[in-house]
Amino acid sequence: MNALEQVGTLLQLLPVQRAAGGLLLAALGLPLVGVVIVGLDIMPVRFAMMHVALLGIAVGIILGLDPGLSAIVACALAGAGVAPLARTADSLSGAMGLLMSLAIAAALLVLSVSGVNANGAFALLWGSILAVRPTDLMVLGGLAVALPALVVWRRRDLALLLHDRELALCSGVRVQRMTMLLLILVAVAVGSAIRLTGALLVDSLTLLPALAARRLGRSLSSIACWAVGIGLVVNLAGFLVSLAWNLPPGPVLVLAAGAVALAAHLIPERRTTSWRATASSSVPSSH
């Protein structure tokens, strides 16, 4: 059986179809999360949410709830809870570091006191694309609608906030409320991506397409479009390659996304108006 026939055969299987659907839905929303992560300079959020997800998994196991959904709920609550700590742009990363430390300590304490199988809890963090369930698709589908809609609906406010928090405040943007909403969406998205690629490979769905897009786009809208487009191409191509040559999808997706990001950064930078400058120019002059 050649590679093409193997792909065709595997795509007839329901778990493979769900995995493909999950990756396509993820590509419509999760790269936009990467744009937010880079814009707010909260790179530690991926690791913080990994630890929060572990805490949610442990609590879910103890209470007899779905561990995956418990992890997503825990991430959403953590995103909302950390927002009040982020009074300034610089404090966002610090807040994420604090959250990461507290979450892993609480998770380990819960696992120790409850007697829950720690290996089983940690195993859920490694993810499995072929284990995607209908509930996972529903969450990813919701993000695929909510995130692009937010970019279209609040494009100016987002551009200002991702450019300069103080400028956004002076321009009438409800920074605290917008930051909380973004942190909740980022947290839920990272928690959802863990099911697809595992906690350590979340960047392939979020950060790497965004890094490439920021190099290619000149406005927030164009960066968002580039990020989604790159996510779609990388997810589809990486998944088909993994099926054709019987390779683990997660690492293939990371290498594909990393190659695109590297290629984008090798392109000579264009001396054009950036989306940050566009955001600044949209503020009415006081003169």
Rank of each mutant, 00 (worst) to 15 (best):
P15T: 13
G79W: 03
A121P: 00
A74R: 05
E5C: 03
E269G: 06
I42T: 05
V241M: 14
A193F: 08
A277W: 12
A89F: 08
A27W: 08
G97T: 07
S286R: 15
R177I: 10
A212N: 01
V151W: 13
V132N: 04
I230Q: 05
Q17M: 12
R276W: 01
P284F: 15
L208P: 02
V186S: 04
P249F: 07
G172P: 02
Q12M: 15
V33E: 08
M96F: 15
T273W: 15
L255N: 04
V186M: 09
I61S: 05
A121Y: 02
L253C: 07
G142T: 09
A89M: 10
A74T: 08
G142K: 05
V110W: 10
A105G: 11
L162C: 03
A146D: 06
S282V: 15
A83C: 14
L211D: 00
V7H: 08
L160Q: 07
R174E: 12
A257C: 04
S91N: 08
T273Q: 15
Q176E: 14
C170D: 11
L255W: 00
E269Q: 02
V73W: 06
W226Q: 07
Q176M: 06
I223R: 02
L160P: 01
V35M: 10
P84V: 11
S219H: 06
Q12T: 12
G97D: 01
G81T: 09
L77W: 09
V145R: 09
W226Y: 06
L4I: 14
G238F: 00
H287A: 11
L158S: 03
G250E: 00
T88W: 15
P31Y: 12
P84N: 09
G79M: 03
V173N: 05
P209V: 03
N2C: 10
V59N: 01
R154T: 12
D164K: 14
R156W: 00
W275Q: 03
G8L: 14
C75P: 04
G79R: 10
V173I: 12
A71R: 04
R133T: 13
E269D: 04
A224F: 07
A277N: 11
A144Q: 05
A118M: 12
V113E: 11
L54D: 08
P84H: 13
A71L: 10
W275M: 11
